[in-house]
């Protein structure tokens, strides 16, 4: 490796440590401000509307689609053993435990996480964050805290909706499309899906909401100068959030399998 290559590799490693350190400080700052008044309920509700209510159509469509696709795939597999009646139960279990929180988080990263990073990044480069600071209003308190709280509220609510709509998709394909017995479909769903499946999925969604909102606002806050930098921050925010969702999902699934199920 040439000297230049060694130097850039060293810079990359040092840069990663610097980013990790800055993220830790940002996280501590967010946690500090979450519990301090004033609690801006109007801003919180506006963010819940933006992240939660306005995201419902896209979550609904993707959940129904996933439920339908999954039911189709299962039908061909379970048909080999004449157990198509289990389609509802299989879709219900996978949606509640895994797919609903995961799809919700990924869709919301794309829709709202990117918007959070771009909004705060633009405010950074146009000195709006500095303007807030000079007025002794902390931008983390005013801008970030409502987004984090709204995400922790909205991600689980949308996940709950995704559970129901995923099963609805499976119902459409299984019962209406393939002619599976309706009462059998619901009977197996009721038999196999436990409240624990639903709770663990909801807890996962809340953790994803916290991670995504903190990561995306962090990258917005650390935007360098210029419009190009806003684009770079948004990309970093989306990619890092998605990677953290995978890692957090694996860790939580492992923990829940050992502790809950």
């Amino acid at each position: 490796m040439s000297n230049g290559g060694t130097r850039s590799f060293k810079q990359m490693i040092l840069g990663s440590f610097e980013t990790a350190g800055n993220f830790f400080l940002f996280l501590v700052n967010v946690l500090k401000w979450i519990f301090r008044p004033p609690y801006r309920m109007r801003r919180l509700l506006a963010e819940v509307e933006k992240i939660g209510a306005n995201s419902f159509p896209v979550i609904a469509l993707s959940s129904i689609a996933i439920g339908m696709i999954f039911a189709l795939q299962l039908a061909s597999l379970l048909g080999l053993f004449r157990t198509e009646i289990l389609i509802g139960a299989a879709v219900g279990m996978t949606m509640t435990r895994e797919l609903a929180p995961f799809i919700t988080a990924i869709m919301l990263v794309a829709r709202d996480g990117s918007a959070m990073a771009a909004e705060i990044g633009t405010m950074k480069v146009t000195e709006q964050l500095d303007a807030m600071t000079t007025m002794t209003v902390d931008p983390v308190h005013f801008l970030v805290v409502p987004k984090v709280l709204a995400s922790v509220i909205s991600f689980p609510l949308l996940t709950a909706a995704s559970n129901v709509l995923g099963v609805f998709g499976a119902y459409v394909v299984g019962v209406l499309g393939l002619g599976i017995d309706k009462s059998g479909f619901f009977d197996q769903l009721y038999w196999f899906v436990d409240p624990d499946d639903v709770y663990t999925g909801i807890i996962k969604a809340a953790v994803f909401g916290f991670l995504v909102s903190v990561i995306c606002t962090f990258f917005g806050f650390h935007t360098q100068r210029g419009a190009k930098a806003v684009g770079e921050s948004t990309t970093k925010a989306v990619v890092t959030s998605a990677l953290f969702i995978f890692v957090a999902d694996y860790v939580m699934t492992d923990l829940m399998l050992k502790l809950v199920f």
């Binding site: 146009t126 709006q128 500095d130 303007a131 000079t134």
Partner: peptide, 16 residues
């Protein structure tokens, strides 16, 4: 800090 008012070069009005 509240005894200062700051007029930024690009105005820095909150665009939202």
């Amino acid at each position: 800090r509240q005894s200062f008012g700051y007029l930024f070069q690009e105005s820095a009005l909150f665009d939202s």
